[in-house]
Design a protein around this nucleic acid. Structure first.
Lengths: 154, 154
DNA sequence: ATTTGTGCAAATCGTTTGCATCTGA
DNA sequence: TCAGATGCAAACGATTTGCACAAAT
């Protein structure tokens, strides 16, 4: 716990202390998940997990990182997203063949998907239920049941 | 139901008469859907709609067409799949960010998705039900509710 | 010091498109 | 005839990867 040193040439996103606190917490989470808390990973995870639940794509996160003064390559963003997903910190949502969405809410829940603008909206897990899911074929186990309610303007 | 059914992969697609009958029927369906029954479209639609319900990707269909002696470009396959989908002859299924699946079953039903081999299995519409779908945001209408039961070996 | 991750750009993958050429009505 | 389709290959956008370098343990 030393003082705040900033070897960044970019900017000063948010209050140094608070930011550092979040980053230390994040580093701990990464470590707990078996991921080495490197600077890019900590930065991305801080953005992801710092402010409540959100849905984002690799592009989105990349842009956000840039805006926050963290310059990571898009490739690193993809890597991080997948590593986080595997580590259980994120959940991948497949609704659109064109893009991959990631959801920081790993709890049980479903989604509205707005086909007009590609926006995702959470549906709390206890607000929706699938009944009578048939038994899967022999030797298969259900890993998850995903519900996507596709909505449209009109 | 005529005699010779051959499930071989070689050539000699099927008996000439039967094939022609299917194609005429298919042409009629295309016409009814507002699509000009061109040779490639009839050939593809015959493959698609000729043998019960199936799930396939553009690649799959392209390969099948080639195997059946119909040489169409992949671009044409994509075009046809989308046109058929718009015409209501097919339904697109989004389960995997990597590929687009098309389903010849346009009725109400859901799917098992096997994550090991990427296979889809139908779940009859009356075998599963989603209860308590929350109302969509103001000004939005529910277009469809998709359920994907992700399964895995084990 | 060793291992693991990063950045960049090039490579890949599935899908779409531009355009000259055909083809069905 | 002639709008509408096709084929090819180039264009495309999203994602992945190969490899030299940087950072974490």
């Amino acid at each position: 716990m030393s003082a705040g040193r900033q070897r960044r040439k970019g900017l000063a996103p948010m209050d140094g202390n608070k930011k550092q606190a979040i980053q230390e917490d994040t580093a701990a989470r990464l470590r707990a998940a078996g991921l080495r808390p490197t600077r890019p990973r900590v930065a991305l995870a801080s953005l992801l997990l710092g402010r409540g639940h959100r849905h984002l794509t690799a592009e989105t996160l990349h842009a956000e990182a840039a805006k926050a003064g963290v310059r990571v390559s898009l490739a690193t963003v993809y890597n991080a997203l997948h590593q986080f997903t595997e580590a259980g910190l994120l959940r991948q949502v497949v609704v659109d063949a064109a893009r991959s969405y990631f959801d920081t809410n790993t709890g049980e829940h479903q989604h509205f998907f707005c086909e007009d603008d590609g926006r995702l909206i959470d549906i709390p897990g206890d607000a929706i239920a699938v009944s009578h899911v048939p038994a899967p074929p022999r030797g298969m186990a259900v890993r998850r049941v995903d519900v996507v309610v596709r909505i449209k303007r009109g």
